[in-house]
Amino acid sequence: MFRCQVCGAIEARSEVVSEVFLVDGLPVLVEDIPAVVCARCGDATFSRVTTERIRRMVHGQTPPVRSVRADVFAYA
């Protein structure tokens, strides 16, 4: 049974999401990740298998499909 680690809700849906991870201080975008998403707060949870695959991808076992330029803003 699902229970959200953020808000405690028990309703969720399967979705495909995109997530930005920081790898060695640099942002890396991973697209099309299968996830379970909380119906209340929207927090995405990944399976252990998915998490391990992402880890291998972003640490060099898979070349990126493309690179993009990103603007950076400081909220100060």
Rank of each mutant, 00 (worst) to 15 (best):
T45K: 09
R56T: 02
C38Y: 01
D71T: 13
D32R: 12
I10D: 12
D32Q: 09
F21D: 01
V58Q: 08
V20K: 10
R66C: 03
R53A: 13
R3Q: 14
F46S: 00
F2R: 09
E11W: 08
P27A: 09
V72E: 08
A39I: 02
D71P: 06
R69I: 01
L29W: 01
E31H: 02
S18V: 02
V68Q: 11
E11N: 15
Q61Y: 07
R55L: 13
D43Q: 14
L22M: 13
R56F: 02
V20I: 15
R66T: 10
T51P: 00
T62W: 10
F46P: 00
V23A: 06
S47D: 03
G8Y: 05
R40Q: 10
R55S: 12
S47H: 02
E11Y: 14
A74W: 12
S67L: 09
E11G: 13
E19S: 15
P63V: 12
V20M: 11
F2E: 08
D24V: 00
D43F: 11
S47A: 04
R56E: 09
V28P: 04
E52L: 14
D32E: 11
A74L: 15
G60Y: 09
A44K: 08
P64Y: 06
R13P: 00
V23N: 07
A70M: 12
A35H: 06
R53N: 05
R66F: 05
Q5N: 13
L22H: 08
S47C: 02
R13H: 10
S47T: 05
H59R: 10
F21Q: 02
C4S: 05
D32G: 12
V72L: 11
H59Y: 07
C41T: 03
S47M: 02
A44W: 01
V37W: 03
R55G: 05
A76R: 14
A70V: 15
P34I: 02
A39R: 13
T51E: 04
R53I: 06
I33T: 07
D32Y: 04
H59L: 04
